[in-house]
Amino acid sequence: MTTESIERPPAQIPAQAGIGLRAEHYKEVIGSQPPIGWLEVHSENYFGQGGKPLHYLEQARQLYPISLHGVGLSIGSTDPLNKAHLDHLNRLIHRIEPGLVSEHLSWSSVDGKYFNDLLPLPYTEEALKHFSTRVHQVQDILQQQILIENPSSYLSYSHSTIAEWDFMNAIVENTACGILLDVNNVYVSAVNHGFDARHYLRAITADAVQEIHLAGFTIDIIGGQDILIDTHNKPICDEVWALYQVAIERLGAIPSLIEWDSDLPPLDFLVEEASRAQTIMDECHALVA
């Protein structure tokens, strides 16, 4: 163990509400230490070798357990796994000792070009086999379990043969990875593709879910139709809070993240959203007890 880690809180992410730590809030979070259970950051923002990002992240780690959420590993790509990217991630894992490490059910690069976006996979047997092999490889290299998050998506493929929730469950079965269940993404995709969000929540393998994401979306009107865009710049909507309640009733208390990426509100607002999630977890727990 390094000297720093002795002063750190345990790595494990508690079954409580947490918030995303963004650069705009570094000083305030470290200075005021808001009453939240844990923090999450986007791994790639800490791939540099030094300077402010790592400086503040290490300070935050002295105060909170931290989860590393990746957006750029491109697990679903047919290109070879990017070893340099994994090296950066591995180094960051050793430096920060995160409680959870997660990535997405998506691809973001092909033929060496990156699109830095979570692009949708076809849900076919071929893609399932490919994605499972890659999750295996990543877990082998990182020497730890990772969580896979369901993406929000804006298109589907006519040759897909597997429902997304079954695809997620099959990956868990094949690789023993965990699930990061983004309830907002379930809702966004349900509206965009016309499936039943509640069915998704009932169908997902309960034991595998180790983290939940909550966020806000924007409604774009395209071709006269409402399309939900997962913008992470708005409060969580009532429908998503209702789905969250359904998920918590089924899954019990699960580490739950308030995710906000652009047009950041004051820190207090994020803390309030987190406390709302916490209240839902506490009330469900009280009912069960």
Partner: peptide, 8 residues
Amino acid sequence: PSTSGDLE
């Protein structure tokens, strides 16, 4: 085009 999964 980008050639890295890290936008920085």
